[in-house]
Design a protein around this nucleic acid. Sequence first.
RNA 1: GCCGACGUAGCUCAGGGGUAGAGCAACUGAUUCGUAAUCAGUAGGUCCGCGGUUCAAUUCCGCGCGUCGGCACCA
Length: 639
Amino acid sequence: MVAITLPDGSVRRFDRAITGADLAADIGPGLAKAALAIRIDGKMMDLLTPLTTDANVSIVTKKDEDALELLRHDAAHVMAEAVQELFPGTQVTIGPAIENGFYYDFARDQPFTLDDLPKIEAKMREIVDRDEPIRREVWDREKAIAHFESIGEKYKAELIRGLPAGDPIGIYTQGDKWLDLCRGPHLPSTGKLGKAFKLMKLAGAYWRGDSNNPMLHRIYGTAWADEKQLAAHITMLEEAEKRDHRKIGQEMNLFHLQEEARGAVFWHPKGWTLYRTLLSYIRRRLEAADYVEVNTPLLMDKVLWERSGHWDKFGAKNMFTSESEERHLAVKPMNCPGHVQIFNQGIRSYRELPLRMAEFGCCHRNEPSGALHGLMRVRAFTQDDAHIFCTEDQVRGETKKFIDLLRSVYTDLGFTEIRVKFSDRPPVRAGSDATWDKAEAALREATEAAGLEWTLNPGEGAFYGPKLEFVLKDAIGRDWQCGTLQADFVLPERLGAHYIGEDGAKHVPVMLHRAILGSFERFIGMLVENYAGKFPLWLAPVQAVVCTITDDAKPYAEEVAAKMKAAGLRVETDLANEKINYKVREHSLAKVPVLVVVGKKEAEGQSVALRRLGGQNQEILALTEATDRLTKEAAVPGT
RNA sequence: GCCGACGUAGCUCAGGGGUAGAGCAACUGAUUCGUAAUCAGUAGGUCCGCGGUUCAAUUCCGCGCGUCGGCACCA
């Protein structure tokens, strides 16, 4: 006798062995048809899993949020079967569900072409129509290895060899011919997948994510519970593409990139205005938070980088170098060693700590060519960098202060959802394990004290210390690290920093490396995508355009523009001999937040007609009032 | 760096073995207009670069560079 408790609290008792499918059928025929899997005590399992002991069980259908993961994983398997049917000799490797979809990595001499995707998709639909039963079997390890080797699936055999001894070898058969090694769970049959999927793109991917391994051919797909969701997702992607900062950057004439300066930005007047506005905002926030600003050399002798450990880790491959008068110089990839040089001038007292040293430091890193991406990943960038020299006791308080400052800045800049990753010690690092224990514990405690939630990002810390990464998503959902806070117990010692403590003895300070934006380049990329170019008034490169309706209004338009400019607004004029409709359209497409329209009426009455971007109406105001109002609205946050 | 796709006017793109075309933008002229495209005209090109095949290459082939999508990398 087993007692099954359903989510509504009701209990069903069975005196025979049943499976999830039987349970669903027992509840009702509709559910039996819709059932995809079951959850036993919260854990998702195959529908055909026998229920042998009392348990809390729920039936998973397409309506469940996490049924999507199941569908996507099955979509990957169906795609693998389709590919092997169409392209015999192709080896399968792994194919997981991912956000919004799935992929599968195939080993094959001949790459797939874009034309293959519709063929594979059609074959997948065929397999769904065949409604092949999917069943789990547990195989003997040696038998499984022998089987996969005999059919030429060396990657699968390698995967099985890598499974921990004693783990069951789960094999899922799909129909009567096709099978795959998999942990599951899976749908009961391919028909349950439905057809709300689409193959999206081809890519190369290294076997097991290691660039020393062969490159496999990856096919990405998206899969949803129904066609409507699929269509919504496709529309979302199309909309997101329009927000791409590279596209908007060109449309709004903010910046450009060109091959003679790969990975370096040519900032145009409008883009540079945005940059300067952001910089002066951050500078003010830092001043208010008791930072001091410094500036350090771009070119320094490479011995400094050898001493800090950067040369070993990054030097040869990632730093730009130069020679002069027998000195080997390196362009700085970061500002920290420079800041330590300033710290090291004279004798420091504990009374000076915490010393918060900021620099808008222009750094160069020779990033791998394939990593470059618009403003998001460049070779020359400026960090809103600072190093806080402090005592161990001050780490907690400084961390809290920094996190508060970062949150406030992100809110001002329109980012409310911030994800935080905690990256701990990497495999290759400087400093002893004891030092790392201390640094990780200090950062973790301080972060928790600040009430910040984070997820662990194992092994991704800097070589000198653990770090918090503040991650933002771009328009199409790619992650980019922007802010960071790194607890460094290593570099100060390596670079000979110390202060005189209360006890009269020399101590090595802790160094907190921190950035709020990360780099101006990347953050502006994020800002552009986040606002889709429709910046709030204080950030907009051009805040208003004064447009004339007829030539008669030209002198008055000039007067209006001059007065607004004098009030500190970024104003342009459009005196062209064009219809007002044309001008409205042009400047709306250019995402100018405010249009100031003047015609005969306004000229006579010393008034203006304001039209907001995206708005339908206009507001007639006296010139002085309009100027006042806009000036107030354009105020930089916190001023 | 690796795999794949792509590279034609300022921009978005069409075309195709016989040295190129549209729309928008630019320029000129007409028009003076009340809130998302007024009309007409003019001008604009090393068809990414270098080699090869060919009577002839922007088109086909090879290499290089760049961009895009992934992977790897990301102090």
